[in-house]
Simulated scan of single mutants.
Amino acid sequence: MLCLGIETSCDETALALVRDGRCVESVLATQMDVHALFGGVVPELASREHYRFLGALYDELMRRSALSLDAVDVIAVTRGPGLLGALLVGAAFAKGLALAANKPLVAVNHLHAHLLAVGLEQPLHYPLLGLLVSGGHTHIYRIDAPDALRLLGRTLDDAAGEACDKFAKMLGLPYPGGVLLDRLAQRGTPDPHLFPRPYTHTETLDFSFSGLKTAALTYLRAHPGLMEEGKRVREAGTDAASPSLCDVCASYMLAVAETLSLKMERALNLPENRDVTSIAVAGGVAANTQVRAAMQRLADKTGKPLLLPSRFLCTDNAVMVAYTGALLAERGWGHGLPFSSVPRGQRLPDDLGALRAPMPKGDA
C-alpha cells in the first residue's frame, strides 16, 4: 500500500510517501525563521506559510519519487490536535486531492502518529506503554493496536516541551529555546537537588510542570547573572555560555527527564500494565539527550525494551502521518470529506475517534 501523508499541525509543512511501512520520499519546509522574529509560533502566519508551501512541496515530492497521484492508494492527513487554521489548510489540500482522484482518505490523530512512528524503524509488539512528550503535550498511553490507544495520564498545565521553552525564554535564549537548552545542558553537570520533580507526590499518572517553572523563576531572580549570560548566548552563540549557565540548564533538564521517568515507571507498575512488552517514547522532547538517557535507565531497570525513534521522526513530519494512515486504512478505517479538524484544547477520543465507520472512497 502506498500512502501519501500531509502534516500541517503547527509550523512545519510536510508531505511524505510511505509504502508497506517504509518511507519512499519526504519533503518538509520549516517556518522557524519566520516565527523566531516573534519569539514563538504566530498562528495566522503559520496558516499562510502552509498555504504558500503545500502546492510546491507536493510537486517536489512527486518529482523526487517519480510517482503520480494515480499510484497513491490512500491519502492521510493530520486532523488534530494543532493550530486550527494550520490544520484546515492541510485538510483542505488532502480533501481536494481525494476528491479529484477518488482516493480513500484517512484523518490521523497527530499524537498517535508520533507514537506509532517508531514502527517505521523497529517492530512493534503490542501492548506497548507510550510516552508522548512534545511542546504541546505530555501524555502516557497504553497501546494495544494502531487503532487502540488508551490515555492514562496527561499534563494538567504546560507540557514538558513548553516548560523547557519557557525556561529558555526566562534565561533570554533565542527561539526555539528547547533545542538550545539541550545543547547547553550537554555541556553542564546537573545538580539533582537544584529543582523539584513536580507533581510526583500524587499517585496519578498526570503531569504538572507549573511548579518547576516557578522554582526555576525563583532561582533565576536570586541569580540574575544567569539571565545576563543567557543574553550573551543569544548574541554570541552557545560558545559564550559559562559553566554555571550550562550546569543550571543541565539541572533543569534532569528534573524534567526524571519526572517523566518516574511517572512512566508508576504506569508500568500498575497491575493492568504488567503485560506491556516495551516502552515507546515519541514527540519533539524525545529528541532531548537527558530524556533519552532517563528513559534508557528506566528500560534497563524494568527489563522492558526501549523504542526510541530517530531524531527526525521525533519532530513533526509527514512520514509518521503516512505510516499511521496506512496502518489504519489496512484495518478498514476511512473518512468522508465532511470530517472536521480538531484544534489543540479540544480532545480527540482515545480510540482515534475521528474515525467513523469505514469508508472506501474519498467521495463517500
Rank of each mutant, 00 (worst) to 15 (best):
L115P: 01
G177I: 08
K95V: 03
L181A: 13
L156Y: 15
G177K: 12
A100P: 06
V89Y: 03
L97I: 10
D157K: 14
N102L: 15
D144A: 10
R154W: 08
T204M: 00
G211F: 09
L99G: 15
L180A: 12
L87C: 12
G85Q: 11
L116V: 03
A168P: 08
D191V: 15
P127A: 08
A86R: 15
V89G: 05
A91R: 10
L116P: 00
T189V: 03
S210K: 12
C164I: 15
T200K: 09
A159H: 12
A101F: 10
H137I: 02
A185E: 06
Y141F: 11
R150N: 04
L129E: 03
H193P: 03
A145T: 02
L194H: 10
A86L: 05
E203D: 13
D147M: 01
P196D: 02
L156E: 02
K169I: 00
L129V: 08
P146H: 07
R154F: 03
Q186I: 09
L131D: 01
C164T: 14
S134Q: 06
F207G: 14
A168F: 09
V133A: 06
L116E: 00
A107L: 11
V118H: 04
L128K: 00
M170S: 07
P127D: 05
H125F: 07
Y175T: 02
D144W: 09
G90M: 07
L88Q: 10
R142A: 07
Y199D: 01
E121Y: 08
G161H: 13
S210I: 09
A159I: 11
A113V: 07
Y141V: 01
L131K: 06
M170Q: 09
V118P: 00
A148M: 01
G130P: 04
L132T: 05
C164K: 14
